[in-house]
Design a protein around this nucleic acid. Structure first.
Lengths: 152, 152
DNA sequence: CACCATTAGTGGCATATGCCACTAATTCAA
DNA sequence: TTGAATTAGTGGCATATGCCACTAATGGTG
């Protein structure tokens, strides 16, 4: 393939996904910013909130993220007093996570901003299209690439 | 909204996008890994390759990424000798980027692996669906959130 | 009960990204 | 031409994520 007439980067599913993620991430970040949280943090607090004092492993699995990455991401939230952890009495290897009252208040503030962002996004792309997009993204998240074509 | 019957995190477009990006990123990373590059680096080298000694700002704009972030991302590639930069003689503020011969060789190796990943992805989700997905992601990347509904 | 394999997290190291303040080079206007 | 405004990058700091090696706590098993 000569250097001319090369396909634009848009051809790579992964590159397209990252690019869109940067764009949308910045949008949600900007919208949620007045709360003092990043969109990722708001999402993480929410995930903790909807769980029943979830274990770190459970959160990581839900978010499809590395356990250690979750640990890192949690640190500023713990430092700022929004989240606290405690060992599961049944299995002391397990560390459970919960919001502090300040964390809950912060989340509620952030969620109000998030809703505006979410609404604006859906206004711009269309509710239906947004829903289809999320479904497609969830499909990707659920994919199993192990044995590509043949699954006997 | 009581803590029960809360919508799953899947409702957030941004969260869904990041989650899918983590998943797909890991897949492409794993596939491209034998080349010694991360999928993001392969994508960046490719972007540089298809450009005509692009300026940093041009690359950042194409990838919709912060200029300083691009600078950071470029460092390991420069350190490893895959990329080199030089001041534009016309405008010495501008720094242009090009692949070194080693960088080109590395890119070619990575592209072979990338193609396998890309092919496998399309085998799993379907070529047509993949194409629609990329189109949707490109739409997002091209969105303008400034004035949400009304654009006189 | 003692030992080994498994499971859950941690810490260190590295890349990915962004923001902000600051510098250098240009452009533009008085 | 000179000084203000703009443009392109850099460096420092902070979060986002991953991998790997290592530790602690469990769960079998003989």
């Amino acid at each position: 393939m000569s250097k001319d007439n090369l396909p634009g980067l848009t051809l790579c599913n992964n590159a397209a996904l990252r690019r869109a993620a940067r764009k949308l991430g910045k949008f949600y970040d900007d919208m949620v910013e007045p709360s003092g949280l990043k969109a990722t943090q708001q999402g993480l607090l929410y995930q903790i909130h909807i769980g029943d004092e979830p274990a770190m492993g459970a959160i990581a699995a839900s978010l499809i993220m590395d356990l250690s990455a979750l640990g890192h991401t949690l640190k500023p939230l713990i430092r700022d007093g929004y989240v606290e952890t405690f060992a599961d009495p049944e299995d002391r290897r397990v560390k459970r996570v919960r919001l502090t009252p300040q964390g809950l208040a912060k989340l509620e503030a952030a969620m109000k901003l998030w809703q505006i962002a979410q609404q604006r996004f859906e206004d711009v792309v269309g509710r239906d299209k947004a829903e289809k997009l999320r479904a497609a993204l969830d499909d990707i998240a659920a994919l199993d690439f192990d044995l590509p074509p043949a699954t006997p």
